[in-house]
Design a protein around this nucleic acid. Structure first.
Lengths: 129, 129
DNA sequence: CTTGACCTTCCCCCTTAGTGGAAGGTCGAT
DNA sequence: ATCGACCTTCCACTAAGGGGGAAGGTCAAG
């Protein structure tokens, strides 16, 4: 399978597939006699795994970590569990940060909504922030 | 005031202050006879305003928009209210996105926690993702 | 034989908010 | 006179995930 067919099959661009190879998420592709990349069918599952992992919010570096374990012949289950656990922690932290920020901004917005622009102090840039 | 003193006064680096000038958040600095930047005291309030705005999660582009209105002699109150309103919307959207993602990842994690690594299918990369 | 649709490598570009470092000028104190 | 601590400009680089496009090779169809 040529790179364009693989790209169409999984809904990525050829640029993205070459980029993943360059980043080590895909092994160096087999080449046809003319130098074109020639993919076996299991490359598609690998690409789809990458996409599912991205939907779960994993970074390419994390995905690469999982794939490397798989490629070494081991089962990455334990590692995947750890990565998912860390991802949960990260999400909780980010949600907490954004929620706290929302409180601050909501207060500022409430102040700005009821304020009188005429009373804006010319000495400072803005009294709401 | 030289750039290093200004930086120390507000807790930024000289690099950051030059960067803000380059981005148009600070007007081109006055120069001493030797070519050194020479800041008046009100630059400090401007830098502190930038920092407070960043704490509210505003981007430098948004902050620049507010400062430009201020520099044109107008009161930026109305614009600030709009920017804060948009920021609230953005925060709500991001929180909703992360919360939805958290649900997905939590399900995957729950599956991975109770699973038996021995049953990992060698044909696929990982059954949890 | 030429056209068009593929493919190759290569390098530069984008986003955000800076950071690091090189090469060189300036100043006060020793 | 020279040392260290400043300052100047400019260029490159970071994380993340690709996108754009040039210059050139390959292949089947008309």
């Amino acid at each position: 399978m040529r790179i364009g067919e693989a790209a169409d099959a999984v809904g990525m661009t050829t640029k993205t597939i070459r980029f993943y190879e360059d980043r080590g998420l895909l092994p160096p592709a087999e080449r046809s006699a003319n130098g074109y990349r020639d993919y076996a069918h299991d490359t598609l599952s690998r690409l789809e795994f990458i996409r599912r992992s991205q939907i779960a919010g994993l970074t390419l570096a994390q995905i690469q970590g999982i794939l490397r374990i798989r490629d070494s012949g081991l089962t990455p289950c334990t590692h995947v569990r750890d990565v998912l656990g860390k991802q949960l922690q990260d999400l909780d932290r980010k949600i907490a940060e954004l929620t706290a920020l929302r409180v601050t901004v909501a207060e500022q917005y409430a102040t700005a909504e009821v304020a009188d622009p005429q009373r804006c102090d010319a000495e400072q840039i803005c009294s709401y922030i």
